[in-house]
Each structure stands twice: as structure tokens, then as C-alpha cells.
């Protein structure tokens, strides 16, 4: 309407750097600095931290969580929630191993079964959320139990050993000296970053998370879009399950317990809004790397793994606190 007097104060150096980082890299400046800071601290604390082989170790350990964090970013960004990520990952590992080992079918079918099982679980999540109107929190909490239980039923509660070599290559192969899971992880990052940041699908995802009603009036089929997102999330959890299974050389029905905690934490550290509307794949990668460096560092310092779980929980609460603090501060000014 009419021109309004608008006191535009020139943003400070810090704010300008924040905006540049988000526009150019799609990454929050704070998380980037935390990652670098964490790396510097670790290299002082441990002589083993700063080496190529340790970096590859960190990337290898991060690849599973990283894929899950990408799944979490899509669903959280759309204003949804997927608590079943870790369990679905466990189910997929068992499904893949069962098909390839117990049924003796080709490895490719094992991979298809693993990812397919994940996608199917996600599809059911999506349908229940959008058609049966059960809240995502309850649906995915229920799926967490269903998928874990099914994994134990299929495997009869035992770990499935003896994967064929083609499947093992997926987790332990090193073309050009780079671990296969890392290569697959980076490929997934490139594709999903393109989708979320540059395509209509990505824009609709964030718009739905921002204001579902606005998305609907803009002609977006919100229910179908959500079903696709939950299916994508389940499929990515299935892929993570395949990577993990191949790396540890077995289908373990207890794989991925509490991984959704780490994945959601990584996504939120990366700048995804817990309530939807904002999210970045590269941010989630940085978040996953922060979790990876933290775990690797605590391992190198021989800190008991129980404390690491505590550290992840604390980081999650702290990350959301920082996010909410900034939102409140922005609302005040």
C-alpha cells in the first residue's frame, strides 16, 4: 500500500556474515563455527585426531547418522516428525540381510528389500498422519515399536551373519581409498540438497511446514506431499540401515536404537526449525558432522559411551534452546 517509514538499520558485521552464510552455503554460521571450534579443541586434546585416516573414520561413522539427519530435515521442515527413523533403520538391515542370507537371493534384491521395507514403513506413517488424522508424534512413536518388533520377529531375535561379498562392498569397499558409505552419503547429500533448496518439491515442503493453509490455498496437494515426505524419510532410513548392516557385516535387529535422537539433533543443529518452515540439507550435514566429531573425540579421549549418549541428549536441548532464544530475540527487536 502506501509507503511506510521504515527505519532500516544497517546490520552489523556478525549479522551480515550470518546472512551470507545462510544465502550462499545454506548453513547457519553458528553451526559451522561450532564444528571448526570442536575440531580445533579435539586436535589439541588428542594427537590422533588430526589425520586423514581419522577424518575418514569420522565421515564413515557419520554417514549413517547423516542419511538419517537428511530424512529428519525433510520431515521436520514440513512441520512433521519422524520418531521411527532408528527402528525403521534396524528393520531394513534385518530385512536386507534376511533376503540376501536366509533366502539366499541376490544382493541387489537384499538392498531393494531393505530400502523397500523402510519406504513401506514411511508410507504407512504418511497415510496414517494424513488420512487417519493421527498426530505424527503418535504414529511414528507407534511405528518405532512396530518396526523394532518386526525386526526381532523376522530375525528371531538373533543377529544375521554371513553377508554376501557384494553387500559387504557397500559398507567396506574403498574405491580410491574412500569408504563406500562416505561416497553414497555424499551422493545422497548432493541429490537431496538440490531437491530441498532448488526445486518446487523442496519449496512446497518448507511452505507446508511454514503455513499449511497457505500451501493449500496455493493449490498444493498437502496430503499427498506429506505422504511422499514420510515415504522418502522411511526410504532414507532404509538406506541408512543398508549402510550400517554392510559396515558391521550383519543384520542386527537392535541396530539404530535411539538414532532418531541423534538424527533429529543433527537436523536442528543444522538450522532446521523444529516446528517446520525452515531446513537445510547442508546444515544437517554440518550437524551430523558435529555429532560425529563429538563422538569421535570422546572415543579418542576414552570417555565411556554411556556419557556420549548423555552428551547427545544435552546437545539436543541446548540446540533447541539457542534456536528458540534467537527467535524470541528477533521478535523483540
Amino acid at each position: 500500500m502506501s509507503p511506510q517509514p521504515n527505519a532500516v538499520t544497517k546490520p552489523g558485521l556478525w549479522r551480515r556474515a550470518q546472512i551470507k552464510s545462510e544465502e550462499r552455503l545454506h548453513v547457519r554460521l553458528e553451526s559451522l563455527l561450532v564444528l571448526i571450534g570442536l575440531g580445533v579443541i579435539m586436535s589439541f586434546l588428542s594427537p590422533y585426531f588430526l589425520s586423514v585416516s581419522n577424518f575418514l573414520n569420522i565421515l564413515l561413522a557419520t554417514s549413517t547418522i547423516g542419511v538419517l539427519a537428511i530424512a529428519a530435515t525433510f520431515v521436520l521442515g514440513s512441520g512433521g516428525l519422524d520418531l521411527s527413523l532408528g527402528s525403521v533403520m534396524g528393520l531394513s538391515g534385518v530385512a536386507g540381510a534376511f533376503v540376501a542370507v536366509n533366502l539366499g537371493l541376490p544382493s541387489a534384491l537384499g538392498v531393494a528389500a531393505g530400502i523397500g521395507a523402510g519406504a513401506a514403513a514411511g508410507y504407512i506413517n504418511g497415510k496414517l498422519v494424513t488420512r487417519a488424522f493421527v498426530p505424527a508424534f503418535i504414529v511414528t512413536l507407534g511405528m518405532m515399536g512396530l518396526a523394532r518388533g518386526l525386526a526381532l520377529v523376522i530375525s528371531d531375535g538373533r543377529v544375521i551373519y554371513g553377508l554376501p561379498s557384494a553387500l559387504l562392498y557397500l559398507g567396506q569397499g574403498r574405491p580410491f581409498g574412500i569408504p563406500m558409505p562416505v561416497i553414497i552419503f555424499f551422493t545422497v547429500v548432493l541429490i537431496t540438497h538440490y531437491i530441498l533448496a532448488f526445486t518446487r518439491f523442496g519449496r512446497y515442503t518448507l511452505a507446508i511446514g511454514d503455513n499449511e493453509n497457505a500451501a493449500r490455498t496455493a493449490g498444493i496437494d498437502v496430503a499427498t506431499h506429506r505422504v511422499i515426505l514420510y515415504t522418502l524419510s522411511g526410504g532414507l532410513a532404509g538406506l541408512a540401515g543398508m549402510l550400517f548392516m554392510a559396515r558391521i557385516n550383519s543384520g542386527d535387529p537392535t541396530a539404530g536404537i535411539s538414532y532418531e535422537l541423534t538424527a533429529i539433533t543433527a537436523a536442528i543443529i543444522g538450522g532446521t526449525n523444529l516446528f517446520g518452515g525452515r531446513g537445510s540439507i547442508l546444515g544437517a550435514v554440518i550437524g551430523a558432522l558435529i555429532m560425529g566429531v563429538l563422538q569421535n573425540g570422546l572415543n579418542l579421549l576414552a570417555v565411556q559411551s554411556y556419557y556420549q549418549i548423555m552428551a547427545i541428549g544435552a546437545v539436543l536441548i541446548f540446540a533447541v534452546f539457542i534456536d528458540q532464544y534467537q527467535i524470541r530475540k528477533a521478535a523483540d527487536t
Binding site: D210, N211, N213
Partner: peptide, 27 residues
């Protein structure tokens, strides 16, 4: 034009104006 405006508040101006009708090209 809705009474509540139906805007996606975390997205920028162009994203709101073009929501659902974004022009596309190939990368």
C-alpha cells in the same frame, strides 16, 4: 486475498508470491 493473508511467514517475498507457480529452468 484471504483475511489472514495466508502467507508463509518464514519464506521471502518472491517465494510467497510465486508459491505453487514457480518458474523452472534446468540446472
Amino acid at each position: 486475498i484471504y483475511q489472514d493473508l495466508a502467507l508463509a511467514k518464514q519464506q521471502d517475498v518472491a517465494s510467497n508470491i510465486f508459491l505453487g507457480r514457480e518458474p523452472v529452468k534446468s540446472f
